[in-house]
Simulated scan of single mutants.
Amino acid sequence: MSVLIVIPARYASTRYPGKPLVALTGADGRARTLIQRSWEAAMQVSGVDRVVVSTDDDRIRSVAEGFGAEVVMTSEACRNGTERCAEAHEVLGVRYDIVVNLQGDAPLTPHWFVESLIAGLLADPEADIATPVLRCDGRALKGFIEDRRHGRVGGTTAVFGKGNRALYFSKEVIPFTGRQYSDDEPTPVFHHVGVYAYRPAALAAYPGWPTGPLEALEGLEQLRFLEQGRPVLCVEVEARGRHFWELNNPEDVPRIEAMLRHMNMN
């Protein structure tokens, strides 16, 4: 089995232009760009044959090559990270058994999230795509609700049914719980972790599918699979004491830097 990790990164983000090149300061006081920290996270995953950064921007390419990453240039026409992964896989000209999309805004992704994801997809031959979900405790759920109360797009939540098949993903907090939870109490809300593992055939087909109304409304690329009736596997992962958050907005920078310091991550 061969595994490719692609880190899609674009400069022209609607919500946060230039996001991949934002500097994040770790516990040692040194600043490294978001794209470098995401690449370092990818390099810690075991059982992976190749890691590439995929971008359409020369500024990102220059920075990524400067810290030692392999870069695959892809088209400005890619509408999201999944389309960029599909193009990168095609450009490389080598067919991998599994292609992982480790998005360039998730530098806190632990290696075991990705390893569990790959194992989950291998164990479920009927799934076209797998993605990790992390059960929220009360503290995390309060953070989600607070972000939405202030009009910020925070983390994405997921609901799934029998066989851990995804039912829906949303930037709203779902399901509705109607009660308060203590900080360390498990809740029925699952944080969707922005990592994907695809089977090559489904990934290659994805750019040819139309953007559906749910994907357009939510701005969530994985909904295209659901709108096409394709099975999406949710793999529950364990935090093991680690904090996790994606960099979605400028307001997330101090939150992620605080997490880096808390975990003593340089």
Rank of each mutant, 00 (worst) to 15 (best):
A140K: 12
P213C: 02
A205R: 04
T157H: 09
L134W: 07
Q180N: 03
F169I: 07
G178Q: 02
Y206V: 12
R148L: 08
Y181S: 02
P213E: 08
P188W: 12
R149G: 10
H191G: 00
K142H: 06
P188L: 07
L214P: 01
G212H: 02
P175D: 00
L214Q: 01
R165N: 03
T211K: 03
F176N: 01
P210N: 05
T177E: 05
A202G: 09
D183M: 10
A201S: 06
H150K: 08
R199Q: 04
T187D: 08
D184S: 13
F160M: 04
G161D: 15
A204C: 07
K162V: 13
E172H: 05
P213I: 01
G208M: 02
L203S: 03
V189T: 08
G178T: 00
L214I: 07
F176W: 08
V159T: 14
V193H: 01
W209D: 12
P175G: 01
R139F: 07
R165V: 13
A140Q: 14
D147K: 12
L167N: 02
K162E: 15
R179K: 09
T187Y: 12
F169V: 13
A202S: 14
G163F: 12
H191V: 00
G138R: 02
P175F: 00
G138T: 02
G163D: 07
V195M: 03
H150L: 10
F144S: 07
E146C: 11
G151Q: 08
T187M: 12
P213D: 11
G178M: 01
G138D: 02
